[in-house]
Design a protein around this nucleic acid. Sequence first.
DNA 1: TTGAAAGCGGTACCAG
DNA 2: CTGGTACCGCTTTCAA
Lengths: 352, 352
Amino acid sequence: MKRPTQLDVAKLAGVSRATVSYVLNGQTAGYVNITEETRRRVLEAARQLGYQPHAVAQSLRSGTSNMIGLLIPDMHNPHYWEIAYGVDQEVQRSGYEMMLLNAALNPARELQIVKALARRRIDGLILLVTYITDVQPEIEMLARENMPIVIVGNSIRDIDSVRNSFSEGALLLMQHLTGLGHRRIGMIFGVGQTPLGQERLDAYRCGLQNAGLPVNEDLIQHCGPTIEDGYEAASRLLNRHERPTAIVSINDYLAIGAQHAAFDHHLRVPDDLSIVGFDDIDIASYVTPPLTTVHSSAEEMGRAAAKLVLQRLKTPQIEAQQVMVACQLVIRGSSGPAPAHVAERNSLHDAR
Amino acid sequence: MKRPTQLDVAKLAGVSRATVSYVLNGQTAGYVNITEETRRRVLEAARQLGYQPHAVAQSLRSGTSNMIGLLIPDMHNPHYWEIAYGVDQEVQRSGYEMMLLNAALNPARELQIVKALARRRIDGLILLVTYITDVQPEIEMLARENMPIVIVGNSIRDIDSVRNSFSEGALLLMQHLTGLGHRRIGMIFGVGQTPLGQERLDAYRCGLQNAGLPVNEDLIQHCGPTIEDGYEAASRLLNRHERPTAIVSINDYLAIGAQHAAFDHHLRVPDDLSIVGFDDIDIASYVTPPLTTVHSSAEEMGRAAAKLVLQRLKTPQIEAQQVMVACQLVIRGSSGPAPAHVAERNSLHDAR
DNA sequence: TTGAAAGCGGTACCAG
DNA sequence: CTGGTACCGCTTTCAA
């Protein structure tokens, strides 16, 4: 059984295809007028056949798809879903659909997706890219062809972008920890070579130096993106002879793994170990103890990105914009003063 | 700047459009052969122009889109992403793209999405529908038009579906709790009128009856889908004069909210209160204490659903299949024996 | 007020 | 072995 086409409707209503198109779109092309009678006949015929316009044909004809593509690096991290949610909301408000694609942390797939979306002649593109150098040429090419593109959490010259001021947030976070007396602070770095991650890592190093503390590369644990990876990275830190008194996780998701590692090592958080993260995912305030983190509304970022795309869609010629989304330190129960006995042991050790 | 079309390539290579199509698709339409020389010229011209085929045009011509649509009820619940992840993996293995749409728990939006996907002439559809009665007519209509459709967590006559045997799992869960001596068991019911939720609710009631316990409707707290809602529903239960000694949450996500409510009420889990959930989301084993839950591989379900769609795409005429994904009780740290003093108080109360 | 027809970009048949 | 061309379904100009 085949779906009815405009022609079927036209036949049934006893009019031409053009008339059907006029009626269904309200599009009277300037000065075309339709008799109320014909109008009713057409609508009735369409209803009777269950006619649905063929979006692909419309798309080919009009050159627009009514879709905005969103590429995220990893479907497992709630942070990206919050961004996607913001994008979806905003995009829908303007009558578009969001098409969400997952790169599954695979650089090759990232490029492949961008290309596929371009072939689909998607109306606009929002990219959260981990391995940006690989896709940069493609992005620049698309931008030259007037495809509205927004980069999130990153930036390329002459292309709209949304970023958050995480380096500041990260510094505040480090100040918070050093201010609490922590001198041995571990880092869980579980992402690809993203500038976003790099920014946080730099802030970590910088924060230590600001407090006059040495940067010990052994305390930086590189790991994968799963919660299990976070658990293991934290375990490695906690198994060290001189374990850190605080752990900074590159994101909340991994921090939850770290919290559990502390639990399995019979360490109380925050009494024996402070754990902090980034992103403030919704679960962060519900874990035990609630996670100290750097908040930046992911949904907000998504919305900002969507707005940029939609704006460029309307007025393509304006200059590239950089939107900054603020972030703030959220102090919850997972961070506290450095444990006294460890501090003591440390000074003994230092004295030796 | 406009993107080059096949015609541009043809001109540059000094051949016809047909030849370009043949070369690029390897499609020699049976017995068409191309000189190595022409072939090279065409490829070179395509490369030089950065030619990318127009997927919309291809789609219109071929009648296929190379996309499988997936509709999920709520982007905030990790359970659904795991399903989406499974679908994505499987669908990609077969050279398709997954198009993910979020209904945001809105029944009207659900129907709207299904219709939009149908208009896009998507190749196949995987639906996780909350308010199924609203979309059922549309689904049946599409199925009649030979659109491959799979329903997940639900079922409609003559349509492929994937379900998990949660009612069994739920009964095991209830046995587990009653076996531990719990007599006052609360329920957090934070989903729409989904049969899936209903199934779990029925199992809750049934499980109580099996243990010879009364069903107290006041112990069933209906609430919204956010983690905050879970927190509040649990709080309401815990604020009762005679609070439950165990709480069954309709899903893990809300259970995390419940855990936090217990924390805020200074109740230790599981000593003072047992909390159990459903789904076994990845975070479930990392919260403190790790969540007792009913596991069913969501990713597995997604994969099964994708396989069904792809299979029907190949062979449309086979009979509708129902795939059951097994599930099992996973006992972790969040459930334990009913607290003695409460049990005591209960019996005193019963004796009065 | 309505209808005929020219494309949008590709594909695949048929003729050369 | 290659080129011409009809068609996928819809929109929109132009003519009637």
